[in-house]
Design a protein around this nucleic acid. Structure first.
Lengths: 208, 208
DNA sequence: TCCGTTTTGTAGTTGCCACTCCATTTTGTC
DNA sequence: GACAAAATGGAGTGGCAACTACAAAACGGA
């Protein structure tokens, strides 16, 4: 059966300028949603921050939830991109320590405001936006995968025992990071992430 | 300087019937906020669930944020009350395992919806309601304290080494619980809490 | 059985904020 | 430079949800 372009109109095409505007909107929305929460971030404020008008915002996004999905993509790229830098060469406890330092430095640079961008989005949207929840589950899955591959590399390099359960360990370590960031965000104090990631690493050291 | 009762009017007194109505409202609000998120829980729905009118809601609470603070108190009592049951007699790895089972059973009973009531409230309110953030930080502190006392008891019973850092360990374990619950909520799958709490316990076992 | 206080019912109203409309300007292509 | 498509400006508007006004009923202590 032929696909009608009335039912499925061609996706809109954007010029370079348009894409730049779209990007400004997503960046502004990401920043305000992280700083004040998804619901507290008003489209009006996002327009001001991105220096666009209402018509521009709706030219690039169907509605607020479409914008939220774009923010999830953007934060996923930002967070996973940052972690990938270190995780792709995770082959030793020294590299693992660098990763820990990156996490701690990253939250301290915001005075613990916002917590983990992905964690905050997940908690705020899991019960109200099924598409967003699914998207964030995928983001976490990819994050966990990077960790798992790193642990397998360490294992293959003889830094970890051959019988470790990399799948389960990577999930647990990600949980430590997320929980530590949530507590740090609530306490406004980086001690929590620091302690919880250090515990995870200390446990890994018992598996050498 | 005498305190004027104009500036500081006497706190309102409630009858037993009034307190019961207030309680119905808090319970309904807690349930809807957990199920749909704080912002998505409309006062109108809370009224229907609690079978009260708008005037009743505003008779007992100044505004929505006052209700939110009451919900935090309520959930703190509920969650810490449940955990206290087990944590006060935390003196062995057997008891620790019971605690783990309690956490897993608790989230599974909701099909992983809502995650941890305190964690969800913290994440949703940390950046928009300073009073709520502070209240939740206190709740977490008390939760951590119960855990710390339990670890100290285990240590005193010879189940853990004498040189453990109970403060840091209790914080890390709480982070594992919170992170595990957040991931489980997002994934709709209790594997994450299970793995992360099990890792924390496995680490403790290396400290015997 | 009063009478003041607390509790409740109903019917608004108000402000905010996501979203729309339509005109105009800019851009890209032939 | 002509023409269509894309990008933008900016003043709306509509709906919804928090909150209010006011009066009636129930209650509780002399």
């Amino acid at each position: 059966m032929a696909v009608s372009n009335l039912e499925y109109p061609a996706v809109r095409t954007f010029t370079a300028k348009g894409l730049a505007t779209r990007e400004r909107i997503v960046v502004a929305a990401s920043s305000l949603m992280l700083e004040h929460g998804v619901d507290a971030a008003k489209l009006e404020d996002i327009q001001a921050e991105a220096r666009v008008s209402a018509s521009q915002l709706y030219h690039y996004f169907e509605d607020k939830s479409a914008l939220i999905l774009a923010v999830i993509d953007h934060q996923t790229d930002a967070v996973l991109g940052m972690h990938r830098q270190i995780l792709v060469r995770l082959d030793s406890f020294t590299a693992l320590q660098e990763w820990r330092d990156l996490i701690v430095a990253s939250i301290e640079s915001n005075q613990c405001v916002g917590g983990c961008p992905l964690g905050s989005l997940a908690s705020g949207l899991a019960e109200s936006d099924p598409l967003a929840r699914a998207a964030l589950a995928k983001s976490f899955a990819e994050w966990q995968r990077m960790l798992r591959v790193g642990l397998e590399t360490m294992r293959d390099h003889g830094e970890l025992r051959a019988d470790i359960d990399a799948e389960s360990l990577s999930l647990s370590i990600l949980a430590s990071v997320q929980g530590g960031l949530l507590l740090s965000q609530t306490r406004r104090d980086s001690d929590a992430v620091r302690a919880s990631v250090d515990m995870a690493i200390a446990y890994l050291k018992t598996l050498r």
